[in-house]
């Protein structure tokens, strides 16, 4: 997950100084940290993996060449992701990706989707407890939460998600980016970012619930 904001800034300042001085280790650190995510992000804008690789390569060159002009008004990561998004978007438009990712994400976020099946709540006109739980969640076996098999269930649930939700939950929860960085990389609003993240989390939670409770039903 993310470090404290101060550490992030101190880390940025040191990295930027090292990059300007031509420190190869600093560059390798940066590439190792972000390259895989950047490839995945670029893929959301362009049609083919080869084009995504080109865009990421171009972005790194732009970073190398532009680091002297980095002013530290945003985090280094946000700055890099803005360059990536701009290049990927331009390239995607030129190559004609049918629907730009940001438009897709906005459309996805606008669709009403319940985090929990509506049947699990009492009716709106329930005399006693309108819209309260009818079938509340039950305790999870916490000791199994990080087991290998559970992580496979989570991986499977992520694969099932719509592209826009998967992109957001990967960056926020797998890679620990903050909201602003994700909005910058995917060119989506803060509100849509949260909607997509919440839907993704709710679906993974539901998959875990089915997995844990299914086992308990068989055991009973």
């Amino acid at each position: 997950m993310n470090g404290e904001p101060f550490q992030q800034t101190a880390d940025d300042a040191a990295l930027v100084a090292a990059l300007r001085a031509g420190d190869e280790q600093a560059f390798v650190t940066l590439v190792d940290r972000y390259n895989a995510s950047m490839l995945r992000i670029a893929r959301l804008y362009v049609r083919t993996p080869a084009l995504a690789e080109e865009v990421v390569q171009e972005t790194w060159l732009a970073v190398i060449q532009g680091i002297d002009r980095f002013e530290g008004r945003s985090s280094l990561k946000t700055w890099i992701m803005r360059i990536l998004a701009n290049r990927a978007r331009t390239r995607g438009a030129r190559e004609g990706r049918t629907v730009p990712f940001s438009a897709l994400a906005t459309a996805d976020a606008a669709i009403g989707e319940a985090s929990v099946e509506p049947e699990r709540f009492r009716a709106r006109d329930d005399g006693e407890w309108p819209y309260h739980w009818a079938a509340p969640p039950r305790d999870w076996p916490e000791e199994r939460l990080l087991a290998g098999e559970t992580l496979q269930v989570i991986g499977g649930a992520l694969d099932e998600l719509p592209e826009s939700q998967r992109a957001v939950i990967r960056l926020r929860d797998v890679e620990g980016w903050d909201a602003e960085e994700v909005c910058e990389a995917l060119q989506i609003s803060a509100g849509n970012q949260r909607v997509l993240l919440h839907r993704a989390r709710a679906k993974v939670r539901a998959a875990l619930e089915r997995y844990f409770m299914g086992d308990m039903a068989t055991a009973a």
């Binding site: 390798v28 390569q57 939460l145 989570i154 989390r201």
Partner: peptide
Amino acid sequence: QLRSTVTAVGTLSEETLEPAARDELL
């Protein structure tokens, strides 16, 4: 449970870069 879900998702591993691609950038 949603918090636990976030924690568990956070333990999935990230891919790392292939050495060849990294050398080229370097």
